[in-house]
């Protein structure tokens, strides 16, 4: 009877063992964006993105504080926070998605692996699907360096640009992500 209980418990926990989570994380991810227009280029960077990547399932989540984006000029930063993304009301930008093209077997095999990522991006209280290509570099030390870039449109996230500065802000904003993951 005792052996039967042990066998049953082992059988029940087998799927969990087989799908053991291999998780990587950071609290210093780099997210930047660039708006290019003939009138001016506006760039902002954020070096405090948090992210968790579950290599076994491909699930990935990235979160940034909107106020943590640094601009070259104070006026740009104030307009971004107060008028465009309303960071008092919507303090975080969050991406939840799935990475494909990278499997747990790749860990321990240094090299660069092309991947694609697909998921939902929430900014300004609006959630939209996002899909992008990127890469994950497995470094000899066992850390992962993930990079991707994609384009977002302020209109898609109900971010209204006043007419006076409409020509100064691109309709398509380039977003760059570079995250150095450490194993949890």
């Amino acid at each position: 009877m005792k052996n039967l209980v042990i066998i049953l418990l082992a059988a029940l926990s087998l799927p969990n063992i087989l799908q053991a989570q291999v998780r990587y994380a950071t609290r210093n991810g780099h997210v930047s964006f660039l708006s290019e227009t003939p009138l001016e280029n506006i760039e902002a960077t954020n070096d405090k993105a948090t992210s968790v990547l579950d290599v076994s399932s491909g699930a990935v989540e990235v979160a940034v504080l909107m106020k943590a984006f640094s601009f070259e000029k104070a006026l740009m930063q104030e307009h971004f926070n107060e008028n465009y993304v309303e960071s008092d009301k919507y303090p975080k930008g969050i991406f939840k998605g799935q990475v494909t093209g990278f499997v747990a077997d790749a860990i321990g095999k240094p090299g660069t692996y092309p991947v694609s990522v697909k998921g939902d991006l929430t900014i300004h209280g609006v959630t939209k699907p996002v899909e992008a290509n990127g890469s994950i570099m497995v470094e000899p030390a066992g850390t992962l360096k993930a990079t991707t870039k994609f384009i977002v449109s302020p209109d898609d996230f109900d971010i209204r640009i006043p007419g006076l500065v409409r020509d100064n802000i691109a309709k398509q904003i380039n977003v760059m992500v570079q995250i150095d993951y450490q194993k949890l």
Partner: peptide
């Protein structure tokens, strides 16, 4: 203060 995202920044 920029908010809370695992840490307070």
């Amino acid at each position: 203060c920029a908010g809370f995202n695992l840490d307070v920044l």
